[in-house]
Design a protein around this nucleic acid. Structure first.
Length: 390
RNA sequence: GGAGAGGUUCCCGAGUGGCCAAAGGGGGCAGACUGUAAAUCUGUUAUCUAUGAUUUCGAUGGUUCAAAUCCAUCUCUCUCCA
């Protein structure tokens, strides 16, 4: 891939580039550049939202550049106390190491492992003495930190701001100094932090990194950004069937963004399908995503399963749950299989006509069950139960 | 160091002695409609051996026939002043 093409793809997707001229110069220098990308160490469960910048990293990789993943294990080990009641679980060295490994396995579904390096920021942050921290803190001013909108908003609303929180941008920015990054990539929510890195590099006598930010995609709820904790995500580790199903649930208005930011399908092609038949467009997207993360061979099975559920039929390969009893009540079965979390919830679901056995709605709490049957909650949770046979 | 405001069920937030398992909203779940979308409407959202019982309103103890509500102590959080 030539530099012009690389530049074009980056510019097309980036929200902001600081700044474009520097980027062009660096790309044309002929050097293999160091591209920094920061990663949260706590939960290495990547979803499609993460793939937006990852795909840009791939483009850079294909142009011969070197990716450095900085795992923020140092901050992970301190634990961020801003969550109030819960003290965030502190991660051990083994855990962060393991998470890093998992992370690597997931990102290499997209990236070339031979050009991808993982480093942990505890390597340098852990060695800093207090004097070093003071020196770092002295490079920035309160006024500049307060430029960050969330800080200033919290301040004017009399919300607490921890001193360590003020330091976070500096800590993260220092990572850029430590790895001497040429370019840093991140989501638009990281803009401020990335720019701090750029400023700090100047202070430490380095050539400042080019900062590029990319859009965050909204999750399946259509409002919030995609995130695991909001449960509105499509995980790249999820099964082909689940992926397909979730893709079909993407709100119509967001499909264009999903196509643009998470696939290679060209603009003309997807805009055509979307304007013609939005339903078909979802299918095209779902197939593409399954293909990307599970391979072409998995597409048909995932699609068939989806269609059979949509037709209100029971899918072929559903989870089987064994109960070591000959006979028991419906409520017991719901709780044992995890379809309900308590007897009360089980009763509620039955009262609300949300439970079916072999396709027939249950309307009596006292139903006794035995043998083999398929039980479902709502429209898409199915479990085949096999009781002990006589 | 001083002054003040707070801690309510998944979240936000009402509730100042019985009608409180606790308003309202959000979110979740289920139903209708549909394209397993969105929007809309409905129901539901502590637990249990279930027309009843048990536990829940930061913690512990107390007052009372009766406490989320009153008192004491403790604890945590936030704001302001110095």
């Amino acid at each position: 891939m030539n530099n012009g093409k690389t530049m074009e793809i980056l510019m097309k997707n980036a929200v902001n580039v600081f700044n474009e001229e520097e980027l062009r110069t660096k790309l044309n220098s002929g050097k293999s550049l160091k591209i920094k990308f920061g990663a949260d160490p706590s939960r290495p469960d990547l979803h499609l939202g993460h793939t937006v910048p990852l795909r840009m990293l791939k483009v850079l990789q294909q142009a011969g550049h070197h990716i450095i993943f900085v795992i923020g294990d140092f901050t992970g080990m301190i634990g961020d106390p801003s969550g109030r009641s819960k003290t965030r679980s502190q991660l051990s060295y083994e855990e962060t190491g393991k998470n890093g490994q998992t992370y690597f396995e997931q990102v290499t579904k997209i990236l070339d492992p031979s050009k991808t390096e993982i480093v942990y920021n505890s390597e340098w942050l852990g060695k800093m003495r207090f004097a070093d921290v003071i020196e770092l803190a002295g490079k920035y001013t309160l006024a500049r930190i307060m430029e960050r909108e969330d800080f200033s908003a919290r301040y004017s609303n009399n919300q607490p701001i921890g001193i360590h929180e003020l330091l976070y941008p500096l800590i993260q920015g220092y990572d850029s100094v430590a790895v001497n990054a040429d370019i840093e990539i991140g989501g638009t929510d990281q803009t401020f932090n990335l720019l701090v890195g750029r400023e700090l590099q100047k202070d430490y006598g380095q050539i400042p990194q080019v900062v590029m930010t990319f859009p965050l995609i909204a999750g399946l709820d259509g409002v919030e950004k995609m995130s695991k904790s909001l449960d509105n995500y499509i995980g790249i580790d999820e099964s082909a069937e689940i992926m397909y199903e979730k893709c079909m649930r993407i709100p119509d208005g967001l499909l264009t963004d999903y196509f643009r930011l998470t696939t290679d399908i060209c603009e003309a092609e997807y805009t055509d399908i979307i304007s013609e038949d939005i339903r078909e467009a979802h299918k095209v997207y779902a197939r593409k995503i399954v293909e990307m993360y599970h391979g072409r061979d998995c597409i048909n099975a995932a699609e068939d399963r989806y269609n059979s559920i949509a037709a209100k039929a029971i899918p072929d390969n559903i989870d089987v749950f064994h109960i070591e009893e000959y006979e028991t009540g419906i409520i017991d079965v719901l709780v044992k299989t995890g379809l309900a979390t308590s007897n009360s919830e089980a009763r509620r679901l039955i009262a609300g006509r949300g439970i079916k056995i072999d396709g027939i709605t249950v309307n009596d709490f006292s139903v006794r069950l035995k043998g083999k049957f398929v039980i479902c909650r709502g429209k898409n949770k199915f479990i085949e139960v096999r009781m002990k046979m006589i």
